[in-house]
Design a protein around this nucleic acid. Sequence first.
DNA 1: CACAATTATGAGCAAATACTCAGATCTTGA
DNA 2: TCAAGATCTGAGTATTTGCTCATAATTGTG
Lengths: 205, 205
Amino acid sequence: MSSGQRRIQPRKQPRQVRAELTRQRILTAAAHVFADHGYAAGTTNRIAERAGISIGSLYQYFPNKDAILAELLTRHLDDGTAAAAKVLTGPLPESIEEIFRVFVRLAVEAHLDDPHLLRMLLEQAPRSDELLERIGRVKRDMVGHTRVLLEGHPEVRVADTATAARLVIATVELAVHDLLAEPDPIDAGKLEDEMVAMLTRYVKG
Amino acid sequence: MSSGQRRIQPRKQPRQVRAELTRQRILTAAAHVFADHGYAAGTTNRIAERAGISIGSLYQYFPNKDAILAELLTRHLDDGTAAAAKVLTGPLPESIEEIFRVFVRLAVEAHLDDPHLLRMLLEQAPRSDELLERIGRVKRDMVGHTRVLLEGHPEVRVADTATAARLVIATVELAVHDLLAEPDPIDAGKLEDEMVAMLTRYVKG
DNA sequence: CACAATTATGAGCAAATACTCAGATCTTGA
DNA sequence: TCAAGATCTGAGTATTTGCTCATAATTGTG
């Protein structure tokens, strides 16, 4: 909408188990409803119905519809960054090819669950400045890490590492996402192999 | 969506010059309004207001809101395929690198006008089965042509041309689109150079 | 000019939907 | 056990918005 931003914070803190359970039911139902109907047609009443609760209960945990979307996206981003952080703490492979393979595999795995939900999340994110900011920060972090990696690796021969890093990140995220979400999805293994080959040959020059 | 599809055909044929003029004003206004507010918040009343006509006039040329979106997308697809067809009739360069450059440049040029409008078009297209089908056909054609190109070119050394073609098309379309639509857009020239380099090194093996 | 066809108008209707609130029901802790 | 707090309920409200239609204005034609 053209008007100002809406709050996104949860309305109350659950104090009983059933409350937390209800919260989870709402989120699960919302994920399904949004994936099936899209954001606009995924009405809050429909979400409540699918969750098996009343519409009033939904609004006890989420101040508005956008907040539900925000929570789902936050979850996904947190999962992704957590997985990436876990990989980064351990020792990375030597060759740039195997390093790329690790991260491409991460991206593939992150998208295999529910490509349609994920597509919807990213498409509808522009509804909130806060979410846009969050996505932007994650992206910038990824580009930054990639750039450092490219600059420090002996096999890498690209001149403009800043541009290269942006290209690599955009390519991995978007192509993986798109090719797995298509009606006739590409084979995940082949995608991984070809994507890794493309990136490796590119940066090796 | 769960409900049925709506018609998309125009309501009437303009018979006077002012009618055609009004039609164009509507489309131009819609492009701006959709780009600024998104599809959902881009109301038909707002479009009419921006076009400087009454809401009734709008509905004399478009049976419903989706039809306006469809017309805008159709225009873009037609422009794109026309540009591609024009290139394909003439003689292509010899080297695979220069061939890629031609098509990457086409993609970049197609996105330079209004990346935000284009993003909105492609995101909202799923509202119509007909549009989805149209987009899918264009995409399949592009993949098909690319595959033929890869199989027939002496410099190309990829084994699985089917997968490679899909990867190439997805990469060009999505990465170009994304990197040009970002708040801090990448330099178009650099993007072209790096993208061409990546694709060339990839298929040369 | 006269008349028909085309185009333009915009108040208002019908439907969809995000969200509220007053009260019912359940859970906890002493 | 029982009161206080937490949670749940769902009919109803307020608003938005796609779209209609009766009427007016404009244009083309003989």
